[in-house]
Design a protein around this nucleic acid. Structure first.
Length: 476
RNA sequence: GGUCCCAUCGUCUAAUGGUUAGGACAUCACCCUUUCACGGUGGUAAUAUGGGUUCGAAUCCCGUUGGGAUCACCA
């Protein structure tokens, strides 16, 4: 049978990392077996609906290259793919489930609910009085306009057993299950019901979801059973954690996919990193494109325990991706950051070549190039450096020598500049650093810079280079 | 609290009864070097705990501890 998976987010805000990882695993299960990946929007809770949230879902999936085969925007043979548009379908199946004995109509009010909770808190199992209503009696009430819900029947005794791809055999006592609402009084289904109906109707073969659903899975199986349907293959995955005891969550203000992109992480790197959070290929390879993941992914190598999201490792991986970019691609990605803080006429192409191996996120570009626009104030003690064997005196004479050579310099490339200054050093019996270090300080005003003295000179251009050396000499 | 689930370096993980417990990030040291980074070499660092089973346990079983999940007209 062809494998079919679905990503079924509810449009409640931004896409968080755990969500995206679930989508990735769903995508990979489908694609590693030549199957279909379906996008379904679960908007049955109008209270939580957030405008624009579905666009974020679309754009995120597109950015990482996870294209869906069926979905609200492109249609498919099993539509509609938005749950609020499937209202009638759920109602029809809910009524059918009642006829089949899998559920009952319930007319309990808020105060009954309180009683229900109280009883359950005291350890007793609540007996829903509505359960004893005959279907005919219930239908009369409904016809009379009384608000109702459809509530699941849990009549079985003993233990429910099911197999999970990640966790293996799970056993849960039927007594632990409560008779939850399947169809709400607003006529829309709850997740518990909509999922079963949609996953069956859409012929989903593998259901991938957070492991918080493990304990309610027997309830879903009961519904499948009542309809005479075959349950899907379950793949429950552990959560992505912020630290040892907290899940990554929007409420804590933890980074979402778009936050990370805004901070200069590449979508491919983010995807690669989260693929490895809870899954491993069984080899020592760590860098994977989505296409490569499709080839090697198997759910058997999914982990059971939660994993902590480690931004430091993501940063490293992002650095790997940045370094593997072609110089042109990097330059293109860097350009918006240059525009943000540079107005001077500098050699941006060359700047990109010195920056590329040095930044791990694009956002780091800014702090690396701040000195280009405005030379920072610095103390002349900055010229003192033991390792370079320089001090203010040497700096002064070196800068004068460098200036003389640079004024005469016609070819303004890193190689030729380096050659020139190296020769100056040699002629005056100085170490390279004794010339280059003061020049670099004069040009940048900073202890550390991306690239050496001559590289900075190339970026700044001849005019600015000489201006800054002159300025430095007036201060010494 | 009942129930379910989980437990290897700080972090992500490998090792499905026999390994000096492997790799990666981070960290430290050294090398390279025009500062920084990149790159290279090496180091520190883990089987939560107590009992079994076994010739042999990170691995299987039981207990303990710790953590998470669930018990909504949310998903």
């Amino acid at each position: 049978m062809k494998s079919r998976t679905r990503f079924a987010p509810s449009p409640t805000g931004y896409m968080h990392i755990g969500n995206l990882r679930t989508a990735l695993y769903e995508y990979l299960i489908a694609k590693s077996q030549g199957g279909d990946f379906v996008l379904r929007i679960e908007d049955t809770d109008q209270k939580r609906y957030v405008e624009g949230a579905t666009d974020i879902i679309y754009s995120t999936l597109k950015k990482v290259g996870m294209f869906w085969d069926e979905g609200p925007d492109i249609g498919g043979n099993f539509g509609p793919y938005v749950q609020s548009e499937r209202k009638k379908i759920y109602a029809q199946y809910a009524h059918q489930l009642v006829e089949l004995g899998g559920a009952h109509y319930c007319f309990c009010k808020a105060q009954d609910e309180e009683e229900r909770e109280n009883q359950e808190a005291s350890g007793l199992k609540f007996e829903d009085p509505c359960k004893h209503l005959s279907i005919d009696e219930a239908k009369k009430k409904i016809a009379a306009g009384e608000p109702f819900v459809v509530r699941q029947n849990i009549n079985k005794k003993g233990v429910s057993v099911f197999e999970d791809v990640v966790y293996g055999k799970i056993e849960i006592d039927y007594d632990e299950l409560d008779e939850g609402v399947l169809l709400k009084s607003d006529g829309l289904p709850t997740y518990n019901f909509a999922n079963v109906i949609d996953d069956h109707l859409m012929q989903i073969s593998h259901v991938v979801r957070g492991n918080e659903y493990i304990s309610s899975t027997p309830k879903y199986n009961l519904i499948y059973e009542a309809f005479g349907w075959t349950p899907p293959i379950y793949v429950h995955v552990p959560p992505v954690m912020k630290d040892a005891q907290h899940k990554l969550s929007k409420r804590n203000g933890d980074a979402s996919f778009q936050d990370l992109v805004a901070k200069g992480y590449l979508p491919e790197a983010i995807l690669n990193y989260i693929a490895l959070l809870g899954w491993n290929p069984g080899t020592e390879q760590e860098i994977f494109s989505l296409a490569e993941l499709e080839k090697v992914f198997t759910c058997e190598r999914l982990n059971k325990s939660p994993s902590i999201f480690d931004i430091t490792k993501l940063k490293w991986m992002n650095g790997c991706y940045i370094r593997s970019l072609s110089p042109e691609s990097f330059h293109e990605l860097a350009l918006p950051y240059y525009k943000k803080c540079l107005t001077r006429d500098v050699n941006l192409e060359f700047l990109s070549t010195v920056l590329q191996p040095r930044v791990e996120t694009l956002a780091e570009i800014e702090e690396n190039i701040d000195f280009i626009e405005n030379l920072p104030f610095y103390s002349s003690t900055l010229y003192e450096n033991k390792k370079m064997k320089t001090d203010e005196q040497i700096a002064k004479s070196s800068l004068m020598l460098a200036k003389e050579a640079l004024v005469a310099q016609t070819v303004w490339t890193n190689e030729s500049l380096f050659e020139t200054l190296k020769n100056v050093a040699a002629e005056h019996n100085l170490k390279n650093g004794q010339i280059l270090y003061p020049v670099r300080i004069a040009l940048s005003g900073k202890q550390t810079t991306p690239g050496g003295a001559t590289e900075i000179a190339v970026v700044l251009g001849k005019k600015t280079t000489l201006e800054r050396i002159d300025l430095a000499l007036t201060l010494l």
